Simulated assay, not measured.
Amino acid sequence: MKMNVNFRRLFPTIIIGLLVLIIAACGNNDSSPETENEEGTGNKEVTLDSAMGEVTIPANAEKILAPYHEDALVALGVTPVAKWAIGQSVQNYLEEDLKDVPPIEWNVPVEQALSHEPDLIILQNNMDSYEGSFEDYNKIAPTYLMTEETVKDWRKQIETFGTILGKEEEAKKLLSDYEAKVEEARSQLEEALGDETAAVIWAAGNQFYLFEQDRHSAEVLYSELGVKQPALVQELGAADAASWNPISVEKLSELDADHVFLLALEGEQGIQTLEDSAVWQSTPAAKNGNVHIINDPSNWTNKGLIASQKTIEDVLNAVGK
């Protein structure tokens, strides 16, 4: 991706701000989807709960638009008509499957949505991050607004999308296979790490973001894989979805993690900053050569089935034995 120097410096901040906006754009409807279709297949209409009440999903919907939630579609074997993007930036970890899919801007401009001629649109429950209104999108195609619970829980997304697409059995198998993957990985990491701790830091430009215990992929690392948290991460507590502030290199001197997963694009300025910092080089992970650089942060800064699977693979490749 080509960009001038000034924009490149600003770009990580733009990305972070938009990610925070997307995560924070959640309402208060906790309804769970309930199908009223006898067979629950894509061959018939399916009526289920949404953030706008009951919605009838058309039979055999094929041209589906679900910006920022393509992870669930791809996992279920469905290629969307367009993929979420910020300019030329996309969710890189999905590009193996979506490289030929055209982008749609992150705020889903109504004219762009119309141009892709979807026959089903799936959006988040809160409309604040979108250019159009629910009525605007619903005029283009039947529009399903996920409940807050579904937005926050990727497992619920798999289940809900499975119901919408008539792929309930596929959804169940995906979740079952994932749990088996987690158990196997957890066992390997118990042997490889024991009581050693690990932290996740995102270097965006020359700023550093320490992941709280439940921020994006950190939830996979700590809650699912059972990796121990260093004291500084424990002190942070739960993530605030509405904000995420950078941490100074001086504060990172307090990070007593045995391992650090450093998320940074190749050539990112922050990598050199840490290498040149005596403060950073004095931390346990740096002194022992246990700073594991991950050059594709995209799956680590998202939540989804595929994102979680790739995060597990990154962890095992870095520290698994």
Rank of each mutant, 00 (worst) to 15 (best):
T143H: 05
A257R: 03
E275K: 15
A75V: 06
Y144N: 07
L19R: 12
P246W: 04
E212M: 10
S253G: 15
V20T: 15
L252E: 02
K181M: 08
E254D: 13
P67H: 10
K2P: 06
L21D: 10
T13P: 04
F261E: 03
E168W: 01
D97W: 02
E170A: 12
L123R: 10
I306E: 00
S129I: 15
P80H: 00
F161P: 06
I16G: 06
Q213L: 09
I86L: 09
S89F: 05
A241P: 04
Y209E: 02
A285T: 15
K310R: 13
A307L: 01
F208Y: 08
V319T: 14
L265W: 08
D258T: 14
L94F: 02
M146H: 00
A141F: 07
L114A: 14
N28A: 13
Q229C: 06
I14A: 09
L175D: 02
D256L: 00
N107K: 11
M1V: 15
E54Y: 07
H292A: 09
I64C: 00
K172V: 13
E117G: 08
A185R: 02
Y137H: 07
Y178C: 10
E149G: 10
I247P: 04
L76G: 01
E111L: 07
P246I: 15
G132Y: 00
L165V: 14
E268W: 07
S32M: 03
Y144L: 07
P58G: 12
T311A: 12
G27S: 03
S298H: 09
W244L: 12
E184S: 12
Q281D: 10
H69D: 07
P67E: 08
Q207I: 13
P103R: 13
L225I: 14
K44N: 13
P246V: 15
